[in-house]
């Protein structure tokens, strides 16, 4: 660690407004010592990627419950790649059917957390899988 805390962006793509999970994750990560930025609702993939770059975050948590995950999450990954961002750990959460998970992993989403996930699981996962060394 070179003195800076791990920076996490919690983002909500899609038009849905179910932010209970996103806020709980944001608060739990903050309590766990991460530096957390929460985008607020309804961010386009473009806006999210812009924030990832501007805020120079290490981890991106995407929360979506609208059912549009197969359109929006691959789009976020594509834009990250296009912008040369390949060292940010990206995870997703929300209402995402099991059968969609392999496809999301194929495009580079490291893990998908469904309903009933304990925040500790997410924190542990981030700590074990973070790509950047600070």
């Amino acid at each position: 660690m070179s003195g800076r805390r791990v920076r996490v962006l919690v983002a909500k793509p899609g038009l849905d407004s179910h932010d209970r999970g996103a806020k709980i994750i944001a608060a739990a990560l903050r309590d766990a010592g991460f530096e957390v930025i929460y985008t607020g609702l309804r961010q386009t993939p473009e806006q999210i990627v812009e924030t990832v770059i501007q805020e120079d975050v290490d981890v991106l948590c995407l929360s979506i419950l609208s059912g549009a995950h197969m359109t929006l999450l691959p789009r976020v990954m594509e834009l990250l790649r296009k912008n040369g961002v390949d060292d940010v750990l990206v995870i997703a959460g929300g209402i995402i059917p099991d059968e969609d998970v392999p496809k999301l992993k194929e495009v580079g989403i490291a893990e998908v957390f469904g309903p009933g996930t304990m925040t500790e699981e997410v924190i542990g996962f981030i700590k074990r899988n973070i790509k950047r060394q600070r």
């Binding site: 899609g14 038009l15 059912g67 549009a68 359109t71």
Partner: peptide
């Protein structure tokens, strides 16, 4: 669906992927 709830047309760029979903 979410576009309707947010007062957006189905062909609005923000509606992409959301039309008729929820």
């Amino acid at each position: 669906d979410y576009p309707t709830i947010m007062g957006l047309d189905s062909d609005d760029p923000l509606s992409m992927g959301e039309v008729g979903r929820c």
